[in-house]
Design a protein around this nucleic acid. Structure first.
Lengths: 208, 208
DNA sequence: GGTGTGCGATAACGATGTTACGTAAGGAAA
DNA sequence: TTTCCTTACGTAACATCGTTATCGCACACC
């Protein structure tokens, strides 16, 4: 009959373009499952079925679940870094830092399953490897640079800028974690108090 | 021969004292496994073997893995609350709040597997129920009361004390989370900067 | 054209949470 | 005391998970 050949799966299409296309196709399927159904849906059989292939391909591309999780971890931090890098530079470095904090929160809320993968531990045995931690660091550097800009402008308290950056990161990260866990019912208003506290806590008013 | 009766297991000993003793025995075994080997070791067969019984008892006592996880979650927050409540009350409420923050960190470091269970999500599908969240809230209330004491002493900035308490919690919680994840190599010095920022950010010097 | 190499699907293995089944024990009623 | 019923427990089976072994097939290379 006419309909002898079924529609080619995403995997079959990618297969003609080399391993890199296969890899991104699988990663896309996994990413979609993570975003829409949460980390529970990150089962290898599930991902393979979604892409239209068998789990063997996942082992060839990622070595196993740990490798795939790490790839998603890196992808999450990449998206994170891009979002932070896209925040426009306000002339006032304090304002820029504040807007980075708000973008941090917005990104975490928009892709909470990625955020959980990056900072929670929804995949039982997973520990990020060297490359994964480097990617995380590159995202964090955007925050640290913003704090360094504040320091260069003489706006910072007398403390190592790196410690201030880590403290600021801890504050916004903790806030987001609690919010995602449902511990902060009125998070929208709390974030204002948090930013106010960070402003008056880490900054000094420059003597003109 | 003489050695006909083997040594009675922990479960058999508890069995003679009623269901409550059985429950605490199983919870003790699970708690020990969690503390020493991490959440990976929280397998029902493993816990049952440790206590000397079968998994059926776990289902009768806790209804399944979710119920047992919730019991451990509550136990973790209970320990947390007790530790925070044991912090001596410094006359200066600001000092008391600071020491609560340090106790928060110390407890998290001492029982990091419990902390991961409470704030991470190492058991794939687990969501805390109503009673669990209430227990968590009672621990948090100690922090909120300390902030309220600061407010009563006229030491707080012009913001709702509840928002200040939430912000303070977010900061120390985020710091601990990052430290446990290995993102803060020099955590010991960062905590000083964080506390300094919180002090000058959320407090005002009272006008005598 | 033969040959080998690697890729992918299928199936099996161990471990997990969960459920069904059989059994023994203990108490209540006759 | 005897009988019966309820309850508790252990064993075994089932579905699902990550992982690995096996087999077939297609393509490339000589």
């Amino acid at each position: 009959m006419a309909g002898d050949t079924a529609a080619p799966s995403a995997f079959e299409l990618a297969q003609r373009q080399g391993d890199e296309a296969i890899r991104t196709t699988l990663l896309d399927a996994a990413s979609r499952l993570l975003a829409t159904e949460g980390p529970q849906a990150l089962a290898l059989r599930r991902i393979a079925a979604e892409a239209g292939c068998s789990t063997t391909v996942l082992y060839r591309m990622f070595g196993g679940k740990a490798g795939l999780t790490e790839a998603l971890y890196i992808e999450g931090f990449e998206r994170f870094r891009r979002r932070l890098a896209a925040v426009p530079h306000d002339p006032d470095p304090r304002v820029h830092l504040r807007e980075l904090g708000l973008a941090y929160r917005a990104n975490a809320l928009a892709e909470r399953n990625y955020y959980g993968l990056m900072f929670g531990e929804p995949v039982p045995g997973f520990q990020p490897g060297e490359k994964a931690l480097a990617t995380a660091l590159s995202a964090y550097m955007i925050l640290e640079d913003a704090v360094a800009a504040c320091a260069a402008a003489g706006l910072l308290i007398d403390a190592p800028p790196r410690h201030v950056a880590a403290s600021f990161w801890a504050a916004i990260h903790g806030f987001v974690s609690l919010e995602l866990d449902g511990h902060l019912p009125d998070a929208d208003t709390v974030v204002d108090t948090l930013m106010r506290g960070a402003s008056s806590g880490f900054f000094v008013t420059p003597r003109k």
